[in-house]
Simulated scan of single mutants.
Amino acid sequence: MKKIIIFSTDVYCDLEDLEKKRFRDLLNELINEGHRIIFTSRDIRKKEQLTDINIDNKKIYFKDRDSVKNTIKINEGKSQYFIVVGNREQDLFMAATNKLFFAVPRWCKSYDDKVLKYGIGVVKVESLKKLINVIDNQNSWYYRLDLDKQTTVLSLTSANTLGNHSTEELEMVNGFRKYLKDGEKPMAIILLCHFLASISNNPEFREIKDWAIMPSSGTELNKDMLLFKEKARELMNGKKKEPIFIRHTATFKSHDPKNAAYRLPCDRHFDTIVLNDKYKGKLKGRTVCVFDDYLTNGTTFETARNLLKKEGVKKVFFVSLGKFGKKYIKQDYMLNGNLYNKGYSYEFIDRNDEYGKIDSSAIVEIENLHNIFFE
């Protein structure tokens, strides 16, 4: 999916001469790959500082920010085609308002206060090219299950390492797992960029209003998953920062083999999870996205689905970074009482095995990620 890449003029003007040459080479590569370029500034006189750039109004444009906003508006419904690269709050505002991927070049001589917090930092021109390649590479979700009219389950990658896999795929899957389970950081930025690209490239996500993560087995939120959730919320201009789900009492870890017999039912989660009372009366009719690191049978997501369904949400997207197997087990419960306080009651009604679809092109994208970063 080819992009229109919007650069603030400082992105180029703040480079040293040698790096400017590399940046011009980058522009040529992007244009040859089918992308289009817009430079923008609040001050139209800054165009005079771009004399080395061939602004031909066919492949490379210069527009003031109001004109850029109009360009985005004209392409409304296709705004996932844009990437914003800048160092000013106006760039951040443009990206957040239109739910566009936002990158911040760290070589700029000055930044407005919020941009480093909300954008993805890029240190070198070469790294920016890799980032754009990652965004352009991401078009597929590995796993999809439309559970019902209100619920869609998506997984970004395969978590399986058994069977036939290429060396590149195994290296990436194992690297993601080490990051998510053991906190090893080398794969963090790759996975985060791939994940955010999957959000900005998917038009369905534009209807999401609220963003959440499921609590881990303890009472604290997983800091890495919280980072992913917050970056997605900021990217898509979500307003509510507070967690939707709160675990008031620790429970056992689902991947512990000695607890395998008790892993499936949602009961242990209903006994230990409540909704945040800051959301009381504020979930009805909303579209909500819930993240977790790995999806096996879906017990944690099913807990969330039943809680949100009781509160009258319009639609739920469940997103995991990795999926084990193909089966998802739907579990329906009757909930009664105040879901914002512990002690509400639940009654099991029914369960069904559901099977989502695997898109093998997502595996190719993971292999491409390896090539983008390691070759």
Score class of each variant (00 low, 15 high):
residue 236 M to L: 06
residue 58 K to Y: 14
residue 246 I to M: 07
residue 276 N to I: 08
residue 21 K to R: 15
residue 9 T to M: 11
residue 262 Y to Q: 06
residue 85 V to D: 13
residue 201 N to Q: 08
residue 119 G to H: 00
residue 68 V to D: 01
residue 158 S to D: 09
residue 47 K to D: 05
residue 317 F to I: 04
residue 103 A to L: 10
residue 328 Y to V: 08
residue 261 A to E: 06
residue 259 N to L: 01
residue 175 G to Y: 00
residue 130 K to L: 12
residue 137 N to A: 03
residue 371 N to K: 02
residue 183 G to Y: 11
residue 5 I to K: 03
residue 45 R to M: 14
residue 252 F to T: 05
residue 375 E to C: 10
residue 94 M to T: 15
residue 152 T to A: 05
residue 5 I to M: 01
residue 371 N to E: 01
residue 260 A to I: 14
residue 262 Y to R: 07
residue 342 K to D: 10
residue 368 N to M: 12
residue 68 V to A: 00
residue 206 R to Q: 06
residue 305 R to D: 09
residue 344 Y to H: 09
residue 172 M to H: 11
residue 69 K to L: 05
residue 303 T to N: 01
residue 217 S to N: 09
residue 334 M to T: 04
residue 124 K to Y: 15
residue 163 G to H: 05
residue 154 L to C: 14
residue 93 F to T: 11
residue 208 I to C: 03
residue 182 D to H: 12
residue 238 G to M: 05
residue 17 D to N: 11
residue 246 I to K: 13
residue 191 L to A: 03
residue 286 R to P: 02
residue 87 N to C: 13
residue 304 A to L: 00
residue 256 D to N: 08
residue 306 N to Y: 03
residue 37 I to H: 11
residue 150 Q to E: 14
residue 180 L to C: 06
residue 9 T to N: 11
residue 231 K to F: 02
residue 155 S to I: 03
residue 235 L to T: 09
residue 66 D to Q: 13
residue 372 I to H: 00
residue 252 F to D: 06
residue 132 I to N: 01
residue 275 L to Q: 04
residue 48 E to N: 02
residue 81 Y to F: 12
residue 87 N to V: 12
residue 313 V to G: 02
